[in-house]
Write a protein that binds this DNA or RNA. Structure first.
Lengths: 209, 209
DNA sequence: GCAAATTTTGACCGATTGGACAAACGTTAG
DNA sequence: CTAACGTTTGTCCAATCGGTCAAAATTTGC
């Protein structure tokens, strides 16, 4: 409805991708207001007016970036399956989220920036699509608890905690690396985190007695 | 060494406090670059040149704010005591951190903003003071594990997870409230979170038979 | 090969920004 | 009362910002 006919030239497609890639880099490290069109243009290897030929306003770039992000961002939770084995499902959800923090830290920071500032541009999506999805998956988890397959807890706060702990390794990466130091803070930190989080969540969720 | 003689008038003390309070509000919601001196001045109820009489540069305000923040921010971890009962110590550490997220969300967001942007202004403190403190407390926790008082895990990632989960309720507050909805997202959400986190961390850390 | 359409650029604009400055205003101690 | 000191304000400035525009350069369809 809102995108009637995005007929695009080959050049347009390529250049738009280039700009979005550059904008992701710039926005995720400086925030929206902290980033300038010039910075993005330079990172994309083109002049400012040229960039503005592809995206007429700075906010259009951010909006496009945000729309793409949200799809991939919620994919792991969408895959949480009622059918599968509960502990296996949760374990792979945690692993997938941690992999996203490792492989797409800029996307994570872009999202964190948006939320930190009060989510002015995606509030409807949080209260709509996101809430619906979380409620749905919380119901699934509650079902597992009722069936005695996992220990009883608050499913919503469980999901929050998984989000918080996994995204922490992207959003607070500099702090994590600074504290761990050059040895433990190297490439192995994600495997260490994976082991720790699996123990914390999965062992903790095994049904009691 | 760096603050030789901060002799200050009564008016200076009062006005500086006023400015810092206003700046905390503005910086924590807009980030450093996203905030303007005019905004802070207006929030503090004074003119821009008047504000610049008390803080000569915008960055001076941010720096002062950050220095104050770091002291109070690490206080809970500093209090983690080797002498006390391990599970009690950890439980009250988690509770204290969650209380800080509830009572000082602006400070939490200010800190998160700084880290998100790569911690350009506090990197030395992260690699110095913070790393030292965390290493020290990690050693304490390791001692508890060796003594069989709590289950074995990675102390560093345990601390990261406590930080992540508790601060989440300040930094991602809008998302938490949006997902929980008007009923569960009300004032009780911190008590729910406290219960959940205690179960997650404390029960999970009880020594295995 | 050429005309039409697309892409790129340099020059420019008004608004906003952080900050400087001197003059005006208030306060306070003797 | 008054001189010295502290505080406040209006005005101004250079730099940077998001964005425009027309003209030049390039690509594309035939």
């Amino acid at each position: 409805m809102d995108t009637p006919a995005p007929r695009r030239t080959r050049i347009q497609q390529e250049k738009r991708e280039l700009i979005l890639e550059a904008a992701l880099e710039v926005f995720s490290t400086n925030g929206f207001r902290g980033s300038t069109i010039d910075q993005i243009a330079e990172a994309a290897g083109m002049s400012k007016p040229n960039l503005l030929y592809y995206f007429r306003r700075k906010e259009d770039i951010h909006e496009t970036l945000m729309q793409r992000l949200l799809d991939t961002w919620l994919a792991p939770l969408r895959e949480l399956d009622d059918i599968g084995d509960p502990l296996t499902e949760l374990r792979s959800y945690i692993r997938r989220k941690l992999e996203m923090a490792r492989d797409f830290p800029r996307e994570s920071r872009l999202f964190a920036n948006e939320i930190l500032q009060g989510a002015p541009r995606i509030m409807p999506m949080l209260e709509g699509e996101l809430k619906t999805l979380v409620d749905e998956k919380a119901a699934v988890i509650k079902g597992w608890m009722r069936a005695g397959k996992i220990a009883r807890t608050d499913p919503w706060h469980l999901i929050f905690s998984i989000w918080a702990t996994t995204q922490h390794y992207a959003d607070f990466d500099v702090q994590v690396r600074a504290v761990l130091g050059p040895n433990r803070g190297g490439d192995g930190r994600f495997e260490d985190a994976a082991r720790f989080l699996e123990q914390l969540f999965i062992d903790g969720l095994k049904p009691k007695g």
